[in-house]
Design a protein around this nucleic acid. Structure first.
Lengths: 118, 118
DNA sequence: AATAACAGTAACATAGAGGTAACCAAGTAA
DNA sequence: TTACTTGGTTACCTCTATGTTACTGTTATT
């Protein structure tokens, strides 16, 4: 039988690893913002996101979207319209990030009030 | 009187800015992990955190803690023990991050199950 | 005939994030 | 007298994340 401290220790390590796992996928200057855009609009095109996320370049957007796709958070669909259109949306798994995005948004608003003083 | 689209647009911009504000404070490879450690233990010493956060160097820990202090998320207290001890803890404002940390942890655990397959 | 929209890609440049190792000062244990 | 602990700091170096610019191919518009 293990003592409580051991159990606590183990759980704590597991939690730290979980945090790292999450951050590995969400790292980079733009990922959270991109996800946030997809969160708000459900479906969004490349150039739309380019406009939503202030300051991002097409190079970075392309790169970050690819990584998000690899990590099964974003789904990419090519529509055969003229001119070509590409649609991005959160996958089911990506949608489970919504809570975090909303929390972050709320926190960001409160933080700005606190620091900048509204 | 503004139309609905205008309002939506404005709210959306505000939300994007909030996300950026939050991420500005939480950026860097180690911040979330450090906060997570302080979250779990409430009070923690420099060398404790050094152990909690796998792979961090004293240089980076010192640097990141300073930034967190500047942003009013962490409080630093020097205890006059021998040898000297320095205590770190979340401020009241830092504590408002707990929800996000817990959500991130849960998400990280689910994500690992999904990707690594448990 | 020329230009613009769309969704990128390729080549190149660079700031700064982060790693490594040595060092500091004060006390204290061997 | 030497070495160790605590909580850092400093100098130096590397690498990679990101920025900038230019380019692609297809179709529609002027």
């Amino acid at each position: 039988m293990e003592c409580r401290a051991e159990n606590f220790r183990k759980d704590y390590k597991r939690e730290m690893r979980a945090i790292q796992d999450a951050m590995d996928v969400l790292n980079g200057k733009w990922k959270i913002s991109i996800i946030s855009s997809l969160c708000c609009y459900n479906t969004r095109r490349f150039s739309d996101i380019l406009n939503d996320v202030e300051g991002i370049s097409n190079r970075m957007l392309s790169k970050e979207l690819k990584e998000l796709e690899i990590n099964k958070l974003v789904k990419r669909t090519v529509l055969d319209t003229q001119p070509i259109a590409v649609q991005y949306e959160l996958t089911e798994h990506g949608n489970t990030l919504k809570t975090i995005i909303f929390n972050l948004t709320d926190w960001g608003i409160e933080h700005r009030k606190k620091i900048v003083g509204k």
